[in-house]
């Protein structure tokens, strides 16, 4: 019984199952029935299915609080974080599939970590220090408080992969850096501690696998669970890179 005394719903959760590491495994849908509970999230539902019905079911949860980005999956056709999706926000028939684009590990588990590390290496997503060592015994360099907040705004990306899964270009171009990559360039462009110039950034994103590959469909912006201002940032970075290209 739910809190309001109405009978709880029985959910039918259909999951796209496939284990590429197991000989003979073929992709198929499998449906699990379970009783909905108060405050149930997809984390709670999937954990219950694994504990009580199907111990081999693969998925990735870590923080279960919407902050680590592990559990992105396609929920009723839309990329999102499963841990913070309440079942009451969905119909009683729920369809779950792994994120596209990323290498499939099995069932709902995909290798976003491998993709993100490759992206980070390619775009060099770290502050390129102006001097090699800072004197740790001295006062830190000052930064305008509003600028620090602006950098944090873009730094909030959790690399969950939703933007890549929701991206048209990523389906066509295997090496597209995605909104996650372009947002990082926007973040490091803002950072006065980074020695790189627009010329340097152009070297890594000034082509069709970078900012000029974006078709402005902006699925990324719609599905970003952190509500990052991706539409604005993509447009802004494109303008800066176009200006660089004309030089």
């Amino acid at each position: 019984m739910a809190a309001d005394g109405v009978s709880a719903r029985t959910l039918a959760i259909s999951i796209l199952r496939y284990n590429p590491h197991e000989a003979g495994s073929a992709p198929h849908m499998q449906t699990f029935q379970l009783e909905e509970a108060d405050g149930m999230t997809l984390f709670i539902a999937l954990t219950e299915i694994r504990e009580k019905q199907e111990p081999s079911l693969q998925f990735d949860f870590v923080c279960r609080a919407g902050i680590c980005g592990s559990c992105a999956m396609v929920i009723d056709g839309r990329p999102g974080l499963a841990c913070r999706t309440l079942t009451k926000s969905l119909g009683k028939d729920i369809t779950l599939a792994p994120l596209p684009v990323f290498e499939l590990i099995g069932d709902l588990s995909v290798n976003t970590g491998k993709w993100m590390r490759a992206m980070s290496e390619r775009l060099e997503t770290w502050v390129h220090l102006k001097q090699k060592e800072v004197d740790l015994e001295r006062l830190e360099a000052r930064m305008d408080p509003d600028l620090a907040d602006e950098i944090y705004e873009l730094d909030r990306c959790i690399e969950c992969g939703c933007c890549v899964a929701g991206c048209g270009t990523a389906r066509m171009r295997e090496d597209f850096v995605g909104a996650v990559g372009l947002n990082k360039i926007a973040r490091f462009r803002l950072d006065p501690r980074d020695a790189r110039t627009d010329g340097d950034f152009y070297e890594v994103i000034g082509d069709d696998n970078g900012v000029f590959g974006c078709m402005s469909l902006l699925g990324c912006h719609d599905v970003c669970p952190k509500q990052l201002p991706l539409a604005t940032q993509l447009a802004f970075v494109r303008r800066k890179m176009a200006a660089q290209g004309w030089r």
């Binding site: 770290w126 502050v127 220090l129 800072v134 740790l136 015994e137 001295r138 830190e140 360099a141 000052r142 930064m143 305008d144 408080p145 620090a148 907040d149 950098i151 944090y152 730094d155 490091f188 950072d191 501690r193 980074d194």
Partner: peptide
């Protein structure tokens, strides 16, 4: 600890700043 904060400040952590 103060050295750690300052190292991270140099490495790019956008610490909230004093106004």
């Amino acid at each position: 600890a103060p050295k750690a904060v300052r190292e991270l400040a140099a490495w790019g952590v956008p610490w909230s700043r004093v106004q």
